[in-house]
Amino acid sequence: MPGRTQRKVIDPISSQPLADFKVGVDSVIFSVDTSQNRLLVLLVMRHQEPFVNYWGLPGTLVRQGESLENAAYRILAEKIRAKNLYLEQLYTFGGPHRDPREEANSFGIRYLSVSYFALVRFEDAELIADGVSGIAWYPVKEVPQLAFDHNEILAYGHRRLRNKLEYSPVAFEVLPEMFTLSDLYQLYTTVLGENFSDYSNFRAKLLKLGFLCDTGIKVSRGAGRPASLYRFDATAFAPFKDKPLVFI
C-alpha cells in the first residue's frame, strides 16, 4: 500500500566479521592386504593436544608459501615410502567447531581441512618409524574413535574408493603385474563386500570389456584347476578413459 514503510530483514550471518582461517591437509591412505583380505587405512598416533594419544589421519598445517598438495606430500614423506604415490583431492571439511583449538583461541581462528585420498600397494609401502612410535595400518572395519572429525573424513574417502572401483582401473594399481581373475575378484569383495556380485557375472563382464590380457601362463593354487594369469592392458583401456564405465 502507498506510504507503507518496508522493513529490512537483516541476515544475522552477514553482520558477523569475516572468519580467519588456518588450513591443514589430512590424507586417507588406503591399502589392501590381499593375503588376509583386509582393507587398511594408514593412521598415526597424536603426541600433542588436542586429542593427545588418539589415532588420526596423517596431516599437517600448511606453511607459508607451500601448496596444499606439497603439504600433503611433505607429511606423508615422513610416514611412508611408497612407489608412485598418487594423491587425489577428496573434499574440504570446514564446519565450525571441528577443532577444539577454535574454542581456545581468542582471535576466532577457524581450522579447515583439505583432505586427500590414495590407494597404495601393500607390499610396496614401507612405514617410517624414525624413533617415533604410533604409525600403523589399521583395518577399516576396526578403526576406533579418531581425532577431530577424521572418522567422517575416512568414511568419505571410503565412499570415494568404492565409487572409483566401479568406473576406473584403480584396482590394477595395487595388484601384481600378473594376477588371476580370482585375485581381482577378491580385491573387489574386500573393498565392496562379499555380496556386490557373484564371481561368474564379474568374470564374464570384465573379460567382455577387453582390456584384460591373458598371458598364457597358468598357476596352481591348492587342489583346483590351474588358473590363468592376466595382465591389465592400459592401451586397450584407453578408449574407455573418462567415460561412465561400470566394472561391476
Rank of each mutant, 00 (worst) to 15 (best):
G94R: 10
P176W: 10
Y188K: 08
Q89K: 05
H97T: 14
P144W: 04
V44A: 09
N195A: 05
L87G: 00
R101E: 12
Y199L: 00
N151Y: 01
H47N: 11
A19G: 01
V62H: 08
V114K: 13
V143K: 01
V9T: 15
T235K: 12
S220L: 14
I75R: 03
Y199C: 00
G108S: 07
S31C: 08
R38H: 04
Q186D: 11
I128N: 01
F21T: 06
F232Q: 14
T34E: 15
S113H: 08
E142Y: 08
T180F: 13
T180I: 11
G131M: 01
Q186R: 12
L146A: 08
V41H: 07
A238H: 13
Y138A: 11
I217S: 02
L119S: 00
E103P: 03
A155D: 11
V28F: 00
R81V: 04
F211L: 14
F30R: 09
D214V: 10
Y188H: 10
G3I: 03
R162D: 05
T5W: 09
V52F: 05
Q89H: 04
E49H: 08
P17D: 02
A71H: 02
A129G: 09
Q145D: 12
L209C: 07
G108R: 06
R110W: 02
G224V: 12
S67F: 07
N201P: 00
D26A: 15
T215W: 12
R74N: 06
S115A: 13
I80A: 01
R46S: 07
A82L: 09
K205F: 06
L184F: 06
P12W: 02
R121S: 12
F107M: 12
I153M: 13
S35G: 03
T60Y: 12
R101P: 00
S133N: 01
W55T: 03
S35D: 11
E194V: 05
L18Q: 14
F211Q: 14
S106A: 05
F93I: 11
S31Q: 03
D183W: 10
R7A: 14
E88V: 07
E78I: 11
E173S: 15
V52C: 12
Y156A: 11
A147Y: 06
A19F: 03
H158D: 01
L43Y: 05
P226M: 04
A19S: 04
F117Y: 06
V170W: 10
S220I: 13
Q186E: 11
R46D: 02
V41Q: 14
E102H: 14
P96R: 14
S115I: 05
A82C: 11
G193H: 12
H150P: 01
L161M: 03
N163Y: 15
G210F: 04
L206S: 04
E88F: 11
D124Y: 01
V114H: 14
L245A: 08
G157R: 10
L229E: 02
N70C: 09
L212H: 03
V25Q: 11
S115G: 02
K241C: 06
N84G: 09
